[in-house]
Design a protein around this nucleic acid. Structure first.
Lengths: 127, 127
DNA sequence: GCTCTGATCAACCATCAGGTTGACAACTCC
DNA sequence: GGAGTTGTCAACCTGATGGTTGATCAGAGC
């Protein structure tokens, strides 16, 4: 069913889990090994390893190899991908609200003159 | 298993699905009924209804009641929740990189004087 | 009143996600 | 070389998710 096919989906999905968000918060402070990351949680280290894999596949985390350790490093650039997506639609919505406000104001002004009884609530007509 | 218990989790999870992100994009342009939202996709209207429910539970969308229609409206404020979370850790990571750069520079400068052979790669020590 | 439309609810099915345990690989240290 | 440490892989279980179809509800319009 091609779920989470693109990077954005993987990033959002990765951060949808509170444990993984928590790990990101931990990694923002500094790099950490799998064991260090697993420590605060009472789940198996295998589960944590899986979480890291998810974060890595989302591009949020990279792992290096130091002896038998696998220090994890936060790749903050991927955040930009999300921020851009969010900002795009936030601004679009914002602009629409402003346009709607203008239309409403205009309608109100017009109503004072013409008094037409059935004002169309123009939905989806703002393309 | 308490998956997606807090709002942030619900928002991220909601946007992890490409179809739902698409719907958000559509709603940023203007309000739309369930049928209008369902039109571009070849899934049943019930499936779309479910998607909208997920978006609504995440607080991304509100539905009003106009006759038998249920126009959907994008609530852009919830985006701020995500943006705040992201920015927090992005900046934290950023600051850490800068600090790390400073440390590295310092170490390099020190190496020129002392020439110690095994420089510790201080990880997780930046709390 | 009856029918058509728009949308949701309920039951069901297949897949995915997060967890577990057990095995094993890679590396260090004695 | 053998034991201990660190982490991953594989198989498995369970609950959530996304999809379907059928039934139903709420209004509009004849």
């Amino acid at each position: 069913m091609a779920v989470a096919d693109d990077e954005l989906s993987r990033v959002f999905a990765a951060l949808a889990d509170p444990t993984r968000r928590d790990m990101v918060a931990r990694l923002a402070v500094g790099d950490a090994t799998v064991g260090e990351l697993a420590d605060p949680y009472d789940v198996s280290i295998q589960a944590v390893s899986k979480h890291i894999k998810v974060l890595a596949q989302a591009g949020l985390v990279t792992q290096t190899k130091v002896a038998q350790r696998r220090p994890c490093h936060l790749e903050a650039e991927v955040f930009d991908l999300m921020t851009k997506w969010i900002e795009r639609y936030r601004q679009q919505a914002q602009a629409r609200y402003e346009r709607l406000d203008a239309v409403l104001a205009e309608m109100q002004a017009a109503d004072h003159g013409t008094e037409h009884p059935n004002p169309q609530p123009q939905q989806g007509a703002a393309s």
